[in-house]
Write a protein that binds this DNA or RNA. Structure first.
Lengths: 169, 169
DNA sequence: TTGGAAAGTCAACATCGCTGACATAAAATC
DNA sequence: GATTTTATGTCAGCGATGTTGACTTTCCAA
């Protein structure tokens, strides 16, 4: 199963596919992801919320009016898990769940002004770190970063990922 | 707080630093990380272990003989959390905790043959996904991927990250 | 009109973080 | 030698977040 260095017929080195290089990538994901979530986690503490609340808020902000089912698919959790989170957000007045216009079984989710404020606070913190990393690495590195991550995610998620409004690149 | 497009004195575009681009990066991290952990998670289920066990096993394998304190620093959890995990791993015969030679308070951690087997199983799965992503994106993208992740992680973690034996690149 | 999808709810449980308190052994220091 | 600090282990309890299973309500659509 171990893949060592090799040369492809065409001649390019495959040194970047050695187990050592892959291990570095794995650890980079671990360390970077922890830093990536640390900033919003600190903010959430003050509000008695957790990471699950952040994720819900993020995707509701990104696509206002999305249904519970759509959110479920993006988050990849059970409706029971999500429901617990959504209920507190609705009770606390951060999220509004409007009965669907065409299909009244559905709930269309929206951030209230209060919800949007928290969303801004959370994403500002997360963007600040991302921006610093992007700036330090430069545009070419960022393009590579996005390519590798996109290749790594599940194909179904790639659909959601690409559906977001994108500024190009 | 919103940073729009701009041009740097030198003339290069800063379009890659727009809020939209940052949001895409944030979502890419979320989706990719979930895929990244999904494969080992599936294996761990069969063994009644969780992600915390995987992380401990990974770092003990990477640096055999490391102390509990060193592992604690890398994982960024409390000793109580780690202890619960380590205890089960020792009880199940996956990890050996040897009393330190020079400082008898310390415990040096090693994988047993059984532990190494599980480690291999877990990391094979994780490497397979990483390898596929690397291959799809190509060496230049991989370099950028690593640059951005390294810039994103906490400086203290960067030390651990770089200390690993690296095959260059 | 009836079947099934969407949503909500309740109960129980596991993992894995956390804090706080305390015990032990050994190193380090006064 | 006595004291303090460090490394580790352990117990109890809590909270967030995930799970499965069972059940109800609502309501669209065939």
């Amino acid at each position: 199963m171990a893949s060592g260095a090799a040369a492809v017929p065409g001649g390019e080195s495959l040194l970047f596919l050695t187990d050592e290089q892959l291990r570095k990538g794995i650890e980079a994901m671990f360390f970077a992801y922890r830093a990536f979530t640390a900033d919003p986690d600190r903010i959430l503490e003050n509000h008695q919320y957790g990471r699950a609340h952040h994720r819900a808020i993020h995707f509701i902000n990104r696509q206002p009016g999305l249904t519970v089912n759509a959110l479920l698919a993006m988050l990849g959790v059970t409706k029971q898990s999500l429901n617990r989170v959504l209920r507190t957000l609705v009770e606390d007045g951060l999220v509004e769940a409007r009965v669907g216009r065409t299909d009244k079984r559905e709930r269309n989710l929206f951030l209230t002004a209060k919800g949007a404020t928290l969303e801004r606070e959370l994403s500002d913190a997360q963007r600040a770190r991302m921006r610093a990393a992007y700036r330090a690495a430069g545009p070419a590195a960022v393009a590579g970063f996005r390519q590798v991550l996109e290749a790594m995610m599940e194909p179904e998620m790639r659909r959601f990922y690409r559906n977001g409004r994108d500024g190009g690149a």
